[in-house]
């Protein structure tokens, strides 16, 4: 494993209109406790706001939570905006209420990982640390 030279920076946030922030905050806390620098955007973010913040804060990855059923339009919009603004190297992952059958399409569009409800926190930590090695 590569030796960390700079702390990993991750943007964690909620896109869309739903206010279910229990899961996303637990993930943010767990990552922060594991030494990751967390930029937490808060609620009701548009894809434009998320991408602008991600670029401005120079993050390695974006983790988004969606419980509203709008994942099939919001994740692709974030990916599109990242590429459009030359930030396609920022990894995108997410979680929330996302039916299994939507996962393959979102992954092939470029979402690196989607965590189901009740994913053990360690799995998310391992995934994020794995991102660091590759970046």
């Amino acid at each position: 494993m590569a030796v960390a030279t700079a702390p990993l920076r991750i943007l964690i946030g909620k896109v869309g209109l739903d206010g279910h922030d229990r899961g996303v905050k637990l993930v943010a806390r767990a990552l922060r406790d594991a030494g990751v620098e967390i930029i937490y955007t808060g609620l009701h973010q548009t894809p434009e706001q998320v991408v602008a913040t991600a670029i401005q804060e120079d993050v390695h990855a974006i983790g988004l939570s969606i419980h509203s059923g709008a994942h099939n339009s919001l994740f692709p919009r974030v990916l599109h905006l990242l590429r459009e603004q030359g930030a396609g190297d920022i990894a995108l992952f997410g979680g929330g209420i996302i039916p299994d059958e939507d996962v393959p399409r979102l992954k092939s569009a470029g979402v690196q990982m989607l965590f189901r409800p009740a994913t053990p926190m360690q799995e998310i930590l391992d995934f994020v640390k794995g991102l660091h090695v590759g970046h």
């Binding site: 739903d18 509203s68 059923g69 709008a70 099939n72 919001l74």
Partner: peptide, 16 residues
């Protein structure tokens, strides 16, 4: 408090 044709509503209309 947003109408269905508001840009922020895109993808969320009738979902929840």
């Amino acid at each position: 408090g947003l109408d269905s044709d508001d840009p922020r509503a895109q993808g969320e209309v009738g979902h929840c």
